[in-house]
């Protein structure tokens, strides 16, 4: 919605003798994620040129590996832009994968997909109702829901993986390709495109940003901020359940562990992408790059031969650094 377009349109009287002022107005912090993405990319491209970092296969792999996080993070962008949080997305994905797998084996493809989506609708609606109607902070509601959904998934499956033998499901959700493009990448592209357009170009999107930016002013403007809060949490739940089915399709089974910890990766992607943790601003494209940056780092560190403990340390440092650079003074 708001590009900084200070150059050329800036207040002439104030800045014609102050070029530094114009530069300062060009708020580079908004673009930290893109700058960071390019810097990290070039860094790995040079450092890992012999390890095949730049091969088409590896690059496509990065997209494929980040696809589910990207999908979840699109929903999370709405939640955070609205000044709420959703910690239950990871376990919702897990529960959805399990529900879809079990329903497929009993009733077939369509009931399976509906069961997976139903998990997202129920979780999102419960989260949304508790937050908007009872006014319980979303941090607490969704923290509780994280445990409930994870526990439920483990309980109904007795911790056992639920294989999915339906090839159509597996092909649609994650295993198949459309020409050269992996289905997973297609899914995340669809999520990003719809998410970006709705957030920046619809009445609903503007109302989400206004509610996150100043809830009182939004209320005074006649926006039903309770409904908006409900809706963003509902969206987040549904999107997480789709991500859960993507796990299920890609790995051809439903398992309660799918998605564990994804809430933190998704939140990191959203914040890296320039969405304010305090609400009021956010871009889905930024989130996409945030998610890709995390995937890029993971991939590069693996190729560089770091073990998983070292990866975690380095990834943590890069995320803190990027957020520190992007913060407002």
């Amino acid at each position: 919605m708001s590009k900084t377009s200070a150059i050329g349109t800036g207040d002439v009287t104030a800045s014609h003798n102050n070029f530094g002022g114009v530069l300062r107005e060009l708020d580079w912090r908004r673009y930290v994620i893109y700058i960071g993405f390019v810097v990290v990319f070039i860094f790995f491209a040079v450092l890992l040129r012999d390890e095949g970092f730049l091969s088409a296969n590896n690059l496509l792999n990065i997209f494929r590996q980040t696809a589910t996080i990207t999908v979840i993070a699109v929903g999370m962008t709405y939640v955070i832009a609205c000044a709420e949080i959703d910690l239950s997305v990871g376990s919702t994905a897990g529960l959805s994968s399990v529900a879809a797998a079990m329903a497929i084996s009993h009733w077939g493809l369509v009931p399976g997909v509906l069961a997976g989506l139903a998990v997202g609708v129920v979780v999102g609606a419960v989260n949304g109702s508790l937050v908007s109607l009872l006014g319980i902070p979303s941090f607490l509601v969704t923290l509780g829901m994280l445990g409930i959904a994870a526990g439920a998934a483990q309980w109904i499956t007795a911790s056992a993986p639920q294989p999915i033998l339906d090839d159509t499901f597996n092909t649609i959700f994650g295993s198949g390709n459309l020409g050269p493009i992996p289905g997973l990448v297609l899914w995340s592209a669809v999520a990003v495109v719809i998410g970006a357009i709705v957030l920046s170009r619809t009445k609903f999107g503007r109302q989400v940003l206004a509610t996150g930016g100043n809830r009182t002013a939004a209320d005074f403007t006649g926006i039903n901020t309770k409904r908006i809060k409900f809706q963003v949490l509902l969206i987040s739940g549904v999107v997480a359940s789709i991500a859960g089915m993507l796990y299920a399709g890609r790995l051809q089974s439903g398992r309660f562990q799918w998605g564990t910890g994804d809430e933190l990766s998704a939140i990191a992607a959203v914040i890296l992408g320039g969405t304010s943790l305090f609400g009021g601003s956010g871009t889905v494209i930024g989130t996409l790059f945030g998610s890709l940056l995390i995937g890029l780092i993971n991939n590069g560190l693996i190729l560089a031969g770091l073990d998983s403990s070292q990866q975690q340390v380095v990834r943590g440092c890069i995320i803190i650094l990027a957020v520190a650079l992007a913060r407002k003074k």
Partner: peptide, 27 residues
Amino acid sequence: QGLVLEHSVRDNLLLPLLGTIEKGPLL
């Protein structure tokens, strides 16, 4: 109560008027 301070002048002005500039589902 009146403004979303971090948002642009334009976005603030349009906030109560979003319904009037909708073209189909999009603004």
